[in-house]
């Protein structure tokens, strides 16, 4: 009977599929395990405290303090978020609450386009436009406030700085935050907005008191997801951030984020003892930060976006 053949094949594939479907989970664990194992030489020979909070980076002498790189990553990411978050949330609100469905359909592809531009092209743009802008306009303008606000002090004569990295990153993560926040806003029932408008509230009052509180979890998750994108972004940041292993004190200082450290030193990593383990530890640190943020935001967004249906 041919039918039983077919059914047998079906059952066989179904059983095989259980193993197949475990691949993504296994891959994630494998990446984690590989980086963990390769970091062991340095994790075992150096106390975790000096690795995480030490600021001496002298691979030849066997000194590996990751603090400059961790703080570089955090500086650049925070600056990017400070710039991107208000702009992105306002844009998402504008698209969702003030424009017609037709305009929205026109604008979505533009956001996709922005998201599709390769990282290295953002880097070129940063080198050509943002770095000179920071050097010639922003630094002289804001540096005047340096005596009051130390984070605006200008001691770095070039534009290659935390701020340049932050601006480029802000533009790169913008399409992510906008489209996810927009999607979250679309799940808020129209009736809720009507309920507020019916009481004679203005649109902005409606957004402020009814829409945003209802969407806050999802909007927050979209920001966290943008943050994890920013943490891992390599080439564009590397090209504009200066790559000096120091703990930045001002947004005009150069920084050296973790991804840049990994990308810049792969060539020499086999020639110095423990260097390869150090770079793997850098990858592991980066992966750890990204995973924590990612898992939180993915689970939160799932919850929010599923409620709609």
């Amino acid at each position: 009977m041919p039918a039983s053949h077919r059914s047998k094949l079906d059952r066989w594939v179904q059983r095989g599929f259980w193993i197949f479907s475990a691949l993504p989970t296994l891959l994630a664990l494998l990446i984690l395990a590989a980086l963990w194992i390769k970091s062991q030489p340095i994790l075992l020979s150096h106390p975790l405290k000096t690795l995480l909070f030490g600021s001496a980076w002298k691979p030849q002498k066997g000194e590996f303090g990751f603090l400059p790189f961790i703080s570089g990553t955090i500086w650049v990411t925070v600056v990017a978020l400070v710039i991107a978050v208000p702009i992105c949330i306002l844009t998402a609100l504008y698209l969702s609450e003030y424009t017609s469905a037709r305009t929205q359909r026109l604008i979505k592809p533009l956001l996709d386009l922005l998201a599709a531009i390769p990282s290295v092209v953002y880097g070129v743009w940063g080198v050509l436009i943002i770095v000179p802008w920071v050097q010639n306009s922003l630094a002289p303008l804001l540096g005047r406030w340096g005596s009051i606000l130390p984070i605006l002090t200008t001691t770095n004569p070039t534009g290659y700085s935390v701020l340049a990295g932050g601006i480029v990153l802000a533009v790169m993560i913008a399409p992510f935050i906008v489209s996810i926040a927009y999607e979250v806003l679309q799940t808020i029932p129209f009736g809720l907005r009507q309920a507020s408008l019916a009481l004679g509230a203005t649109r902005w009052q409606t957004i402020k008191y009814a829409v945003i509180p209802k969407a806050s979890t999802g909007i927050f998750a979209s920001i966290v997801l943008g943050c994890s994108r920013a943490l891992g972004e390599t080439m564009a940041v590397l090209m504009v951030v200066g790559n000096v292993p120091q703990i930045p004190r001002s947004i005009f200082d150069a920084a050296y984020p973790l991804p840049a450290l990994i990308a810049n030193n792969y060539g020499e990593m086999m020639s110095i003892p423990l260097y390869d383990a150090a770079l793997m530890t850098a990858s592991l640190l980066l992966l750890g930060m990204v995973l924590v943020l990612n898992i939180f935001s993915i689970l939160a967004l799932r919850h929010v976006l599923r409620e709609k249906t």
């Binding site: 009736g191 009507q194 507020s196 009481l199 203005t202 509180p213």
Partner: peptide, 18 residues
């Protein structure tokens, strides 16, 4: 907003504000 203030609305299903 003045117009809408003059009329209270009861929708098909209630939407309590958050």
């Amino acid at each position: 907003t003045e117009v809408r203030k003059k009329s209270g609305l009861l929708a098909q299903r209630p939407y309590p504000l958050p």
